[in-house]
Computed example of a mutant assay.
Amino acid sequence: MTQKLYESDAYVQEFTATVLSCAPAQGGYAVVLDKTAFFPEGGGQPCDLGTLGAAHVTDVHTDGTTITHTTDAPLEPGAQVTGRIDWPRRLDAMQQHTGEHILSGALHRLFGAENVGFHIGSPYVRMDTSIPLTAAQLARAEAEANAAVRADTPVHCYIPDAATLAATEYRSKKELEGPVRLVEAGGDCCACCGTHLARTGEVGLIKIISAQHYKTGIRLAVACGQRAYDAVAAICADAEAAGRLFSAPAGSLTPAVENRQNGETALKQRIAALQNALADAYVKAAVPGQPAVLWAEGADGDGLRRIAMAVCAGTNQVACALAPGGQGTSYALAAPEGIDARALGKALNEAFAGRGGGKPAFCQGSLAQPGLTPEAVREKVTTFIINRSIPR
Rank of each mutant, 00 (worst) to 15 (best):
P324F: 14
A256F: 11
R219I: 04
N115Q: 09
P249G: 10
R305M: 11
T200F: 10
H69D: 06
P291F: 06
L278M: 15
G186S: 13
M94F: 03
V222W: 02
A79W: 15
E41T: 10
A343S: 12
V293W: 01
G27D: 06
V283E: 08
G354W: 00
I208H: 01
L322M: 09
A37N: 02
N276P: 04
A256H: 07
V32Q: 10
F39N: 03
T315R: 10
A79V: 12
R355Q: 15
P77Q: 08
I385Q: 03
H108Y: 12
A281R: 11
A145Y: 00
H61E: 09
R89V: 04
A23F: 07
H97Y: 06
Q45V: 08
G42R: 02
V293Q: 03
L205Q: 14
E114I: 02
Q96A: 07
R181P: 13
L49F: 12
S122N: 13
A185Y: 05
G105A: 06
R260P: 00
V222D: 00
D230Q: 15
K35P: 04
G201H: 07
I307Y: 05
L75W: 02
P291T: 08
E177Q: 13
G325A: 14
A237C: 11
A198C: 09
T329E: 07
A198P: 00
I208W: 02
G83T: 09
G326C: 13
A310E: 06
T51Y: 06
S389N: 15
Y158I: 09
L344N: 01
E297H: 12
P249V: 14
C22V: 04
P46E: 04
R306D: 01
N115C: 13
T315E: 11
S210I: 05
